[in-house]
Amino acid sequence: MRALVEARGIGMTFRNGDELTEVLKGVDLTLQPGELVALLGASGSGKSTLLSIVGLLLRPTRGTLSIAGQRVEGLSDLERAQFRNRRLGFIFQFHHLLPDFTATENVAFPAAAPAGAISPAMRRRARDLLARVGLADRMDFPATRLSGGQKQRVAIARALMNKPELILADEPTGSLDRVAAEKVLDLMREVNREDKATFLICTHDEHVAARCTRRITLNDGSVDGA
């Protein structure tokens, strides 16, 4: 089976004035379609940086990256934005929903912005996704009237809107209480199982990692067990 993500020799060095900090030191990473992978590591180990590079939010200093068979390191900013929009989904620790929009509109947003409007088909899919994440009774609620856990479930539905092959989650349960976090984890496992969507979940929480099918640990900028 062809790997969904293949990263080879990814290196990342940040410059802060005259000081250079090497965060990633030639990381190799392979994700197969349908995997639910936890990316673990201590603070400063470079896991968020690696997640951002795989999510095309950051350009690596060196190395090659292929996603779904396409080399992406040479893409322009616009091409990277289009790639993210069509093929990647994101779940962040802080949901950052658009407060002036309803739950349905927030979910439909990634599809509506490039299209210019929320079409009836987009609205239907957004509502289906909200029903699936257990928010059928909150579809027309403004984002500001949802609880923290509900907002994060809306964020998961939003990440699924464009049927991405790869979903990148950065501490998705980090700002939730234990009950809400469990629901979110269950939901991600369900999506992974039923939609065959690949998840790369960046976390420092062993409990989250235990619910994943594979774990990758970053240690001082290098991968153990890639």
Binding site: G55, A81, F92, L98
Partner: peptide, 16 residues
């Protein structure tokens, strides 16, 4: 900023 960041992450263009 946060909302704009999310929009950009989801591939919404700078022109939008």
């Amino acid at each position: 900023r946060g909302e704009i960041g999310i929009m950009r992450a989801f591939g919404v263009s700078g022109a939008f």
